[in-house]
Computed example of a mutant assay.
Amino acid sequence: MQPDLELIQKVQYQSFRVWSHGYPHQVARWHYHPEYELHYLRETRGKMFVGDYIGDCGPGNLVFTGPNIPHNWVSELAPGVSVAERDLVLQFGAEFVQDCMALFPEFGQVQNLLSEARLGVQFGKEAEARAHETMSAMLSASDTRRVILFLDLLDYLSHAPRVRLASPSYDPSIDQRRNAVINQVLAYILENYTADLREADVAELARMAGAAFSRFFRKNTGLTFVQYINHLRLNRACELLMNSELSVTDICYRVGFNNVSHFNHQFLQKKQMSPSKFRACHLTQGSCGSSQSAAQ
């Protein structure tokens, strides 16, 4: 079965993403992404799949995967049963790590860990406890504290015992051409989604006819082109509503919408409340939740 591409959009002005989710969940499937991922399983037992590896997993399971290696955790639950917070996840891009290495030569000591992550690695009990404590703290830590916790955890894991999961012959880049094209397209969209972005122009960038590009984009993202653009714009709108004093109208145009009524309608569909109510709930710490969930 072909893995799906997961689209990871970190919050602006943050170098990495830390979040938690339940099960079943839209990302709990056979998938891949160009980011590194540290995955901690809080609850349930079942099977984990990393590349060509299949094994048992249970509470405390801690796995680190590299760019584009498919992975999934499948819990053994009775039909209709769900878990509110099964997974703790830390995700960061290769470019971020490269920038860190360029600025701080000492950061190079984690290179072995990053190289091994290409095939997925699993850690032991001591690392599981350390990762759970640190990642849980990162969920609510201030920006500077988050960075300190991240560096401390990465340093610890670079020295922790671990075992490789996928076989040495496994090639996570088997679909390299497809991955390269969709990653180029998504990078271009991420840079330009606040502008007047037309699907035909992006299709031309990918050197595809319009209909073929539409099928290609939906197959790789699970969304139409317009749905994906709106997803990015609304996530950015949530950030601005929470972290700026701009008016709703200003935010509407700043994130790329050209009609306030349409913006309000799309926001209501996504958040089940108006932009003004979303801002008010955030200011009073009401039912909107935290910024960790607001941008998902």
Rank of each mutant, 00 (worst) to 15 (best):
E204N: 12
E245P: 02
E204K: 11
L197V: 11
K219T: 13
A211W: 03
Q266R: 10
I229N: 02
T249G: 06
Q266L: 11
S261L: 13
P275A: 01
Q269R: 15
T224P: 05
S276N: 10
S276W: 05
Q269C: 07
F278N: 03
R254M: 04
L232C: 14
L246A: 09
K270V: 09
K219Y: 11
R207F: 14
L246Q: 11
N259P: 02
L234S: 00
Q272R: 15
V202F: 06
F216H: 02
N230M: 06
Y253T: 01
F217M: 10
K219A: 15
A211V: 15
T221M: 05
H265C: 11
F216G: 02
F263G: 04
E239W: 07
S261I: 14
L197K: 00
F257Y: 10
A212E: 15
R279G: 01
V226A: 10
R236A: 08
V260W: 03
H265L: 13
Y228W: 09
G222H: 00
H265E: 12
T249P: 00
E199G: 08
M242Q: 14
S244L: 04
A209G: 15
F267V: 10
D201P: 13
F267S: 06
Q266I: 12
Q269Y: 01
L197Y: 04
M273E: 01
F257T: 05
R254C: 05
K277T: 12
V255E: 00
F267D: 04
V255I: 02
E239T: 11
Y228M: 12
Y228I: 03
G256V: 06
N220A: 07
R215W: 01
S247T: 12
V260P: 00
A280Q: 14
R215T: 14
F263I: 09
D201Q: 11
A211P: 14
H231R: 12
K277S: 06
I229Q: 00
N230H: 10
R236I: 05
R218V: 06
H231Y: 14
L241S: 04
